[in-house]
Every structure is written in C-alpha cells, then in structure tokens.
Design a binder for these strands. Structure first.
Lengths: 165, 165
DNA sequence: TCGAGATTGTTCGGATGCGAATAATCTCAG
DNA sequence: CTGAGATTATTCGCATCCGAACAATCTCGA
C-alpha cells in the first residue's frame, strides 16, 4: 500500500475528474476510506501476526469463531466470518488437515456438521490472540479513546443497515 | 450475513469467553466491526450494482482507478486498489479480454505497462458509477451528516497509521 | 562504459472465494 | 405414513488472490 499519491491527492483528483457528474463525494469518501482502512489493517495483521503461523486471514477468522463458540455449526461460521459455505468447506479441509480442528456430524440433525478445536488448535489461539489484540490496540489508539465507542457504533450501524437492505 | 447471533450477542459471548485474558475489548470491537462493515458493504454493492455487469469487486476497483487516472501504471493500480501485482495481472487479462481496457508498454521506461480504458470501458463506468454512488449515499446516510466527516477522518487515520507501521 | 543491484510485470503453485448443481436429510401438510 | 418442498454441506468450474521465482529493464557509482 502507501501508494504514490497521498489520500488527499487521490481525493482531489477524483473530485476534479468527476465534478460534472453531480455525485455525493462525502458518501464516496466514507465508503472508499472504509475499504482502504479494512484492507490496510488486514494486510498489517496478516504480516505482523498471522504470517509466522502460516495462517491466512480467513483461516484465522474460522479458528477465532470456532474458539469462541465451539462446538459450532458450519453455517454459523460462514455467517460470522462473512464468506460463503463453499469457501468455508475448503478452509475447513485445510485446517482439519493441519490438525487444528475436527468435524463431526450432528446427532440431532444429520444435515449439520459441528466444528470444534483440537488441543493443538486451542493452544495456537491461546498464544496467537493476545498478540493479535496487541496490534488491534495499537491501531485503535489512533482514535481518541473517547471517540472509539462512537467509531465502533458507526461501523455497527453501517453493517446493520447494509445487511438489512 | 445477518448471522444467527446479533452483534450484541456475539460481543457478549466474546467477552465472557475471554474475560480472563486481560484483553482490550474496545480495540477488538473497533477492528472486528471495521471488517464486518467493509464485508457487508462490499457484498451489498456487488449484489445490487456490480452483478448485473458481471464484474467482481476487484475488477470494478481496477476499472475505477483506471477511469480516474488513465493512462496509469499497473503498479499504481495495485497500490490504489490494495492488492498484489500478481493478482492485478490476472484481473487485467480478464478485463482486457472483455474489451474494457488496453495495455501498452511505456516509451519512457520499458519495464512499465500503461493501462487505459477503451470506449466500451469508459461507457460502462459512465453508466455504472452514478448507480454505485447512489448506494454509497444510502449507506453513508446511516451516519449523521455532521458526523460523516469525522467518520471518514477516523478511517483515514487508521489507514495512514497502519500503512506506516 | 559497464556491471552489480534495484525495479517492474509476468509466471507458477497453491489457497481462497463464489454461484450453481447435487446428494443427504429434515419438515409438515394431507 | 408419505412424499413434495425446504435446508444443509459438499462438489464443481472458474475467477481471484498471494508469495516467490523469474526475465527484462533501468540506475548509478567506479
């Protein structure tokens, strides 16, 4: 990242290039900066925390959700993580192959599959997540502590509204 | 998305499950809601605006950046879009094959490749982007207008800090 | 001038990522 | 009881997506 143009330069070029089109530039700034921020944070966390364990972002999210909710149904992992069931199947194969989690059929409903961490997977998350959270703390600290709640609330509102559309 | 658990339920379960670990839950809320929001908005825009044109998110970003800056060097597209050069090569092949853009070697520097939109690509963006922006406007409107600037500023700060790390 | 080092886009291998189709299982009206 | 419809995880085909290796090109000090 950290392109040749600064954020300010980019936004100036955008408004110059599109000024005849009668667009909502404020809204454009909100969403484009939302994606920039998410992408930058994700890349940073992959590089500083996840790379050492050979985990992709998605693999980490799957382990995280399972860590919190285990035993958990696969459809819920996909929901919480924000990716498709088809994607999840592949990632579960990878993580099961590495011995971090197990799948078992539900006794109550034969269509469902329940996922749990192995001891190895739980140990991995016990070691990894505190380090992950340290980075989260550093990143969040660029927002005044008194504004962090407002910031998270705005993000929650965007999510809730968009998913309801 | 819109999982079985509400955002509130999830955050309660997380703090219960991890309360013995001495973590920064405020920071966790900021980053996890950043990813939820970005993912939700991206899915929504893909479904409501991009699907009709058969464009992936990344393909749209490539077209958008090229639209603003053409002629543009490929390395800058990757920078602005937040993905790797390897990814870009594949997407450029797809979009060039569909006739939306062209590649040409730079005369000044034989290593560089310059990308420009074709008339077809420019026409596509002229029709597509106003619709895209309408959705951006709806989404951003969940934040009070007077807070939108603050919101975008916070996101910019997160990006700038994280990329500098 | 020249060549070691830096930079760039592509290729390669492997892991996501998704929509559509599929098989297994469950539900529930009749 | 039963079978049509709903729900679930997987499979399939294809399009991203990335790090590492690579070839082409440029830079710049000696």
């Amino acid at each position: 990242m950290a392109g040749q143009h600064t954020l300010a330069e980019t936004e100036r070029q955008v408004s110059e290039r599109l000024e005849h089109m009668n667009l909502d530039f404020q809204a454009m700034a909100v969403t484009s900066n939302l994606f920039r921020a998410a992408s930058a944070v994700r890349n940073h966390l992959e590089r500083t925390v996840l790379a050492a364990s050979g985990l992709s972002w998605t693999a980490f999210v799957v382990l995280w959700v399972t860590w919190i909710w285990e035993p958990i149904e696969t459809r819920q992992i996909a929901d919480e993580g924000g990716f498709s069931k088809a994607t999840l199947t592949g990632v579960l194969n990878t993580l099961e192959g590495r011995g971090y989690l197990t799948r078992e059929k539900s006794k109550d409903d034969g269509r469902l599959v329940l996922v749990s961490l192995t001891d190895s997977g739980r140990k991995l998350m016990d070691g990894l997540f505190p380090e992950f959270n340290k980075q989260e703390q550093k990143i969040s600290s660029v927002v005044d502590e008194k504004n962090q709640t407002l910031f998270a609330d705005m993000l929650r509102a965007v999510t809730a509204f968009t998913e309801a559309q």
